[in-house]
Write a protein that binds this DNA or RNA. Structure first.
Length: 578
DNA sequence: CTAGGGTTAG
């Protein structure tokens, strides 16, 4: 009887069933009955709940146990620590730790590792490191916990140090390190480590591939991402919500939302994150109407949107110019769901209104919002002023921006561009002088392009690429071709006070132009070209790219800082609105 | 037996 019950408990992975079993035990008065001073079922339940990712149910059981005078064993401790790490519940975990010390329990490898993990999640990395260093013995689990602890706080060099020094690495060590690079935005290193992992004969699991897909999404590495998708299929790895969401995001960020939609439609279970990712993906591609349709569908299916989902919906309105829908959604956020708008939501509204030329309404929001507008709010406002060439309001915005972010180059560059575009060259000069004086450097424009699975990087004015000669020759040819289609270099936004020829030159060295020229000489006729930019695309490059798509009969997909542009036959899906 | 690695916004 006893052993049957505990076997049942330990085999059970569904919290609902566990609660049923618990109810039966309580009604039979068996829950706290123990043999040899140990509450048998009690311990088993604590373990099972922690394992079934229902940690909140473990903790009250533990408190019961302590009140009953029966003793937990050291296995129970590792599970209660796991539960406390998951919740997370630092105080309970600490008292458990103290109790274990008081009881003189055996701190074996399992308990020690659980402690390291607990402290790394609920305390500081250095707490965890202290435990790690003091442990009488360490195995790969201890190392792996420390690696992910460092990765979580972004200390990748410490993580890597441990990774390199550990005697034997397993799949999880590799996976933790790859995840660290992916989360820290160091996608190239994530990919490189993955290649190395495979070379050393480790087969990646679903969890590793989720991180890898995030890295692909970040870099716009479609070929790599597709390879992962193929790998999943050919190895029969089930696409759960995590993998599904990561795939959707990867396809969306690599310019193939429709492939993302296919994955989305095939997902049997969709959680909030999956919906949000799909909605945001459509929004980025300017497919706002579809995004909002999905948002309503999500609401109908009973998934309750959170603040982030609303940001997705509002962004979708912005990129598709749906002002009234945006206003309505902003209201319904509080009215229907009781979500109090955060700065970000006000930022979305300001963006939506300002981009659509409703500058005064946007200004009213900035001035009346219940919290202090942050740099992103002023930034959105200023971008709108710039787009609609309202120098006066832009200056007003910039005064606030410079106060909030006195060391960021973007503000100065935007202001100088506004002045230059409206012919106020003396003011533009003044801004540049300020930048020089404050030693603020302009963030260099950077474009990535994937050619046959390899990602190439171009910086503005960059001549480090091995084929730079060919690239420049090609650009001359391109420029000649598009000039005959009506291209006139748009020098308004070039802020350097150099002569006209040099301005042409500065423009022609923009990183996306170099990348496009390179893509044209290294891909077959008709192949789609995909670029990822770190900044917003400039007006001149946008005009040029439209014409290139027509003259060379290529589809060119450009991922901006915030959205996608699909150039085809001389037009762009953003409808010149970004 | 038990412990360690995962996805979205700005």
């Amino acid at each position: 009887m006893n052993s049957n019950f505990s076997r049942l408990i330990l085999r059970c992975s569904d919290p609902k069933h566990l609660r049923e079993i618990q109810a039966v035990l309580i009604s039979g008065g068996l829950l706290l009955s123990g043999s040899f001073g140990v509450a048998f079922f009690h311990n088993a339940l604590i373990r099972a709940y922690a394992r079934a990712s229902s940690p909140c149910s473990s903790i009250p059981l533990f408190s019961d146990l302590l009140r009953s005078g029966l003793l937990p064993d050291s296995h129970t401790f590792s599970f209660i620590l796991k539960a406390c790490s998951l919740v997370p519940a630092r105080l309970t975990g600490l008292s458990a730790h103290a109790l274990a010390v008081k009881l003189g329990l055996d701190f074996d490898l399992f308990v020690n590792n659980a402690l390291i993990h607990f402290h790394s999640v609920t305390g500081t990395v250095s707490d965890a490191r202290g435990l790690f260093d003091r442990s009488p013995q360490r195995d790969s689990v201890s190392y792996n916990s420390m690696i992910s602890a460092y990765a979580r706080v972004g200390d990748l060099s410490s993580a890597r140090e441990l990774f390199d020094e550990m005697p034997t690495r397993d799949v999880i060590s590799w996976s933790a390190m790859i995840a660290g690079y992916a989360q820290g935005g160091r996608s190239k290193e994530a990919l490189r480590l993955f290649t190395q992992m495979q070379a050393e004969g480790f087969a990646p699991g679903g969890k590793t591939l989720v991180s890898l897909l995030a890295a692909c999404a970040h870099m716009g590495a479609l070929e790599q991402g597709k390879w992962v998708h193929g790998y999943l299929r050919s190895n029969g790895i089930k696409i759960d919500v995590f993998l599904g969401t990561a795939l959707i995001d990867m396809y969306a960020k690599c310019g193939e939302v429709d492939l993302g939609l296919e994955v989305f439609d095939e997902m049997p279970k969709k959680n909030l994150m999956a919906w949000t990712t799909m909605i945001k993906g459509l929004g980025m591609h300017g497919r706002g109407v579809e995004a909002l349709k999905l948002f309503s569908e999500m609401e109908r299916s009973g998934v309750v949107p959170d603040d982030i989902a609303f940001i997705g919906a509002l962004c979708a309105c912005t990129h598709a110019g749906l002002v009234d829908r945006g206003r309505h959604i902003f209201d319904s956020m509080t009215r229907s769901y009781g979500i109090i708008p955060k700065v970000e939501h006000y930022g979305c509204m300001v963006d939506l209104l300002a981009r659509n030329g409703l500058l005064n309404e946007a200004k009213e929001i900035v001035e009346s919002m219940p919290m202090k507008p942050d740099a992103s709010v002023w930034g959105a406002f200023m971008a709108g002023c710039r787009f609609h060439r309202n120098v006066e309001l832009a200056e007003y915005a910039v005064k606030h921006l410079i106060q909030l972010e006195p060391d960021t180059s973007g503000v100065y560059v935007l202001l100088a561009n506004i002045y230059a575009a409206s012919g106020r060259h003396a003011d533009a000069k003044m801004v540049r002088y300020l930048m020089k004086k404050k030693r603020i450097e302009k963030t260099p424009g950077c474009t990535l392009v994937e050619i046959q699975g390899t990602v190439h990087q171009f910086l503005v004015g960059d001549s480090s690429h091995p084929r730079i000669e060919d690239i420049l020759v090609k650009w001359d040819e391109i420029e000649g071709q598009i000039r005959s289609e009506g291209y006139v270099p748009n020098k308004k936004e070039v802020l350097l006070d150099i002569n006209e020829d040099e301005k042409d030159d500065a423009l022609s060295r923009h990183s996306e132009k170099l990348a496009i020229a390179f893509a044209l000489i290294s891909t077959e006729a008709g192949a789609t070209i995909r670029l990822v930019k770190n900044l917003r695309v400039c007006t001149d490059c946008h005009d040029a790219t439209k014409l290139i798509s027509k003259v060379y009969e290529r589809e060119i997909v450009v991922r901006d800082r915030t959205r996608f542009h699909l150039f085809k036959g001389g037009t762009c899906t953003c409808k010149d609105f970004w």
